[in-house]
């Protein structure tokens, strides 16, 4: 009893000053070197991004001297027909790849988990290969395939390639969630008079929604940002935004590119935030990081 009270008192008491404050106490010194490395890491990581964001608001064309705040380059971007058309293209391709890969990926995830086939294990490994293959290899291979079957690089080939390689992501993310499902829950629905399809619609999908939405948003951001695969599989017109920016930069960096970059960054951050928040909004147990199937 007394020890319990003592323990409680200890917990309630304000934290004693950290031992590291005392000089020369050996192991307990602050890890100054580790902190310095960490700070340097974050500076190097975020400084270029910060520069892009900052100079997108510059009043002058300079990319080295910041002279004042303006929205001039955003205006320039929205007045640039080529860039806005590319933005539109990227959005359309990302949306198409998202819908296509989620529909196919969900079906695949269910199939791989539920079918008691020996091929299931092999298929699981095959699913991972697109994720670890260097994207440049994927890009070149896709280009060769399209040429081989006589398809000229165009919006169609771009959508096909992006959808195909997104399926793996969706399947890998959702397979874990499907495997987690209690098969008795679907059986219970059927036991209570639901058909197989009703059981899926009324019981399984509501539980799967957060994971499906997370996967969809993830695919959207990946495809929207993608450069390598887009570079190899898109035609001259229409060109996705990432490829357009790359082309534009070869003729000198325009500050309007900074504006585009900033917009893309903000858009991606918002989508990722939504993807992370969805599981919590749906009130699923735990606060797991749901993007990768938790």
């Amino acid at each position: 009893m007394t020890t319990l009270v003592a323990a409680e008192r200890e917990l309630a008491a304000p934290q004693a000053p950290p031992a590291g404050r005392r000089k020369g106490s050996g192991m307990n010194r602050k890890p100054r070197f580790a902190i310095a490395v960490t700070v340097a890491f974050f500076v190097l990581l975020y400084l270029p991004i910060f520069a892009v964001v900052l100079f997108s608001f510059n009043t002058k064309k300079s990319l080295t001297v910041f002279e004042g705040w303006s929205l001039r380059w955003y205006q320039a971007f929205f007045n640039d027909a080529e860039l806005t058309e590319s933005l539109q293209t990227s959005l359309v391709v990302a949306a198409a790849a998202m819908v296509g890969s989620v529909v196919i990926g969900v079906l695949l995830a269910f199939g791989l988990v539920r079918a008691r086939s020996r091929l299931g294990g092999a298929a699981n490994v095959i699913m991972l290969i697109p994720l670890i293959t260097p994207e440049i290899v994927t890009g070149v291979a896709s280009l060769m395939l399209f040429k081989g079957v006589g398809l000229q690089p165009s919006l169609t080939t771009l959508m096909l390639a992006q959808t195909t390689f997104s399926i793996s992501y969706v399947t890998v993310i959702l397979r874990a969630r499907v495997a987690e499902l209690n098969p008795e829950v679907e059986q219970a629905a059927m036991d209570l008079g639901a058909t197989r399809f009703q059981a899926l619609r009324l019981v399984t999908l509501p539980v799967m929604w957060p994971a499906i939405m997370s996967a969809a948003i993830l695919i959207f951001t990946i495809v929207f940002d993608d450069f390598v695969l887009a570079f190899f599989t898109s035609g001259v017109d229409p060109q996705p935004l990432s490829v357009r920016i790359y082309s534009a930069i070869r003729f000198g960096i325009q500050p309007s590119i900074n504006a585009v970059g900033t917009l893309m960054l903000v858009g991606s951050l918002v989508l990722i935030a939504i993807a992370l928040l969805i599981p919590r909004l749906f009130g699923r147990r735990g606060n797991s990081f749901d993007l990768f199937g938790g």
Partner: peptide, 18 residues
């Protein structure tokens, strides 16, 4: 199962959590 006049109480209860 949906066409049999029986109902089941499952070992895991299998409640619809949503």
């Amino acid at each position: 199962p949906n066409r049999r006049d029986v109902n089941t109480v499952f070992q895991s209860y299998a409640l619809f959590d949503h």
